[in-house]
């Protein structure tokens, strides 16, 4: 049985590893960045910090922690992935969780970090590359037919689709429609909480029922394992019989000794004789009253 278990355990471990490694997780680094919205022809849309209307590119941090975009590259040419290097060491390149950053595609890189060395008039592909300049993080091919002041972007943060947006939202969520919270949506369908009670009790019971099944079977296995196999040999059977007849007091004494040992409550005898004073008995010889000098009386 032990051999069989030893064979099974590596299999289970390997299976778990496969499961864990195959599950996709949200990266908490530059990989989480997404191109989110672009405006190619800016006639009367957002103005930059120089008061000019320029094309712009919005990037969204889809992760749940801050990502520093510094060191990454933006380009409008896939053959030249390192066209614009986003400077490092500047706090403004840090994008908070689920937040946005806007770059001005005005071909004026001397105007600051957020001003790119290309514009979007010729570019048909925008891409962002990781700090190694090789790993493509995200790209978008700009379709023809771009109109002035109409942005092209994802209709919502989690969408993979790109459409012409009714309203431009530089530095903000593209989905500006009023949304209900998860709780409101849930209660709309379940105003009295009956559904919640049924689902939740089912899940709680399922979770604990699975535990029940596992421990029930595990218990059976361990009980079987712990039960001594009585061999029909005369001497051994005598030994088993003696063990079975161990009195309750002996068991209790052994249990107490083990408890004291495990809890480190037992004392250590160091074979040195000591006299332990157990009580203070009154004696005039040790009384302070009698040992104090009497105050001299002049009378």
């Amino acid at each position: 049985m032990r051999k069989r278990i030893n064979k099974i355990i590596p299999g289970i471990v390997a299976l778990l590893l496969i499961v864990f490694t195959s599950v996709s997780v949200d990266a908490q680094n530059a990989v989480a960045l997404k191109l989110n919205e672009i405006l190619v022809y800016n006639d009367s849309n957002a103005v930059d910090d120089f008061g000019e209307h320029s094309a712009w590119i919005e990037i969204f941090n889809s992760s749940y922690n801050t990502v520093n975009i510094g060191g990454c590259y933006l380009t409008d040419d896939l053959n030249n992935p390192t066209k614009y290097w986003i400077p490092t060491g500047d706090p403004v390149t840090k994008i908070p969780a689920r937040n946005y950053i806007v770059f001005w595609a005005d071909n004026h890189p001397t105007r600051g970090i957020f001003h790119l060395n290309f514009d979007l008039s010729d570019g048909r592909t925008i891409a962002i590359f990781d700090a190694n300049g090789k790993t493509l993080i995200d790209k978008i091919e700009i379709p023809s037919g771009q109109k002035p002041d109409i942005t092209f972007g994802r209709p919502s943060n989690d969408s993979d689709e790109w459409v012409f947006l009714e309203k431009s939202t530089p530095g903000a969520n593209n989905d500006y429609t009023k949304k209900k919270s998860a709780g409101e949506s849930f209660v709309e369908m379940d105003p009295y909480g009956i559904g919640m009670t049924m689902i939740a009790m089912f899940v709680v019971f399922s979770a604990l029922a699975i535990l029940f099944v596992i421990y029930k079977n595990m218990g059976r296995y361990f009980i079987r394992k712990a039960t001594p196999k009585v061999k029909p040999v005369a001497d051994n059977s005598k030994q088993v019989h003696e063990d079975a007849e161990m009195s309750g007091e002996v068991n209790a004494a052994i249990a107490m000794a083990l408890h004291l040992y495990q809890s480190e409550m037992h004392d250590y005898e160091n074979t040195v004789l000591t006299i332990q004073k157990v009580s203070r008995t009154y004696s005039p010889w040790s009384s302070k009253i009698y040992t104090l000098r009497k105050i001299p009386n002049n009378r």
Partner: peptide, 27 residues
Amino acid sequence: LISNPKLILIGAAAQLGIFGAYCLALA
């Protein structure tokens, strides 16, 4: 709990209090 696993299920049943209060609070 390990020695008598069916006791686990009682722990699940008592969670009814949570959802009873949830329903009342909604009401």
